[in-house]
Design a protein around this nucleic acid. Structure first.
Lengths: 228, 228
DNA sequence: TGCGCCACGATGGTTGACGAAATTGTCAAC
DNA sequence: GTTGACAATTTCGTCAACCATCGTGGCGCA
């Protein structure tokens, strides 16, 4: 019932126009600030105008595009400042999730979290930083699930998709920064520990400090990468 | 440039179909869980089906309706649990806003906040509880503006609209609860004080405790009103 | 009684058309 | 040369009619 939200690789074909447009934006096929003329997009994607319209409407509220009445849509440019804003917002939201996870977690949940942590440890020891980064995402996702907080889960999902469009252009793998991986592992361990102990405030605090560090690391990188 | 986002009373007529549908849902013209058949809605609103389609797409990501592919849309029912979730989420988001406001506030901003506080004081002394409740909304809105945090502002706006649809059915004027108004005023004063002092952590903490009290008051009321 | 097929209801999407609004371009007057 | 008004163009907003697809419930058959 609580299915993982996995990005199915090589999955079934029937992609909706919405997915295709999102894909085109996220992969940078449409440049930021570029005007999205409905008929052009329709031709580009090989679908009708109405399909593009509904897709645009959805993508607007996902924050991928801006749209003014009678003036059309354009790809939204996420500035460095805004990227930091998003990270910061995610920090407090995931903090709430961690708090609830600490209250809800069954022994089984805790075991699974510790298992993920274990996997991170092994990959780090093996020098597989990218693999560890993936485990990272899994851990955060699992905590969200355990929290059973629909509202927070939903908001984080939209924030994620907003950053994703920029992810392609600026490599946001902070875990690749020297020294960051070990530091990050320790922070994750603290979060899991707090959840295991059922200490809700500690879990929230740990999550927030963790993500504020990520944001900080990013800010440093952004100064060189995002500014222009 | 930084125009107030006021709900213009008796303003210009040209309402979009989207606005009209939102209005219809929010005012309870369509019942929760009611299926929204496109053609019926179209006839009801006196517009075409395509207009309804776009409106539905937008309203979906505002959280006012649910939508499953090939299975249509229905008005989303916000349960009591979810209402609390939303309040809780708003609490941390507005906490972030307060934190930023404390960092950004110019002397002028502080003066305006204190002016609003003064207005609340006067209305409370005059026994005008509803008026004070309005000032309350103004104060929160002003803090959001001062924060200059677009992401948080946007998220709070959507959360608000989700609750608004339930607002009509359950009177969420917690300030009307006995004793709550005075308590609330003190909390607001603390928030403004922290912002005036430029004390970011204090501002965030004050906002969070304030809103957690609101949520608590609500939970008590919800037990009698929302449960069934 | 129970199972499966099929028709119907509703959505997803297409095409084509038209009015409305915004932008752009032009031209004359100052 | 600059400004203002007006015309032309672009693009969106909406409608209408149409077909394909998906779900679902009922009917018939076993």
């Amino acid at each position: 019932m609580v299915d993982e939200i996995v990005n199915n690789p090589t999955a079934n074909r029937p992609t909706t126009p919405e997915d295709r447009l999102r894909e085109a934006i996220v992969t940078g096929r449409f440049q930021p600030s570029e005007r999205l003329i409905e008929v052009d997009v329709a031709r580009e994607l090989g679908v009708g105008r109405s399909a593009v319209r509904t897709a645009l409407a959805r993508l607007e509220h996902e924050g991928l595009i801006e749209h003014e009445r009678h003036r059309g849509a354009r790809v939204r440019l996420v500035s460095a400042k805004e990227a930091v804003e998003i990270l910061e917002t995610r920090a407090v939201l995931e903090g709430v999730a961690a708090r609830h996870a600490a209250r809800n977690a069954s022994p089984d949940d805790v075991a699974r979290l510790q298992g993920i942590l274990e996997g991170m440890r092994q990959r780090l020891d093996g020098g597989d930083l990218l693999g560890a980064s993936d485990e990272n995402a899994v851990l955060h996702g699992r905590i969200l699930e355990i929290s059973h907080h629909g509202t927070v889960t939903r908001l984080i999902a939209t924030l994620k998709s907003q950053l994703k469009s920029q992810l392609v252009r600026f490599q946001y793998r902070t875990i690749l920064l020297p020294g960051r991986s070990e530091h990050s592992f320790g922070e994750h361990a603290s979060i899991v520990d707090a959840i295991a102990a059922g200490d809700a405030p500690a879990a929230e605090a740990a999550m927030r400090t963790h993500l504020s560090h990520v944001a900080e690391a990013l800010r440093g990188e952004a100064a060189g990468g995002l500014s222009r």
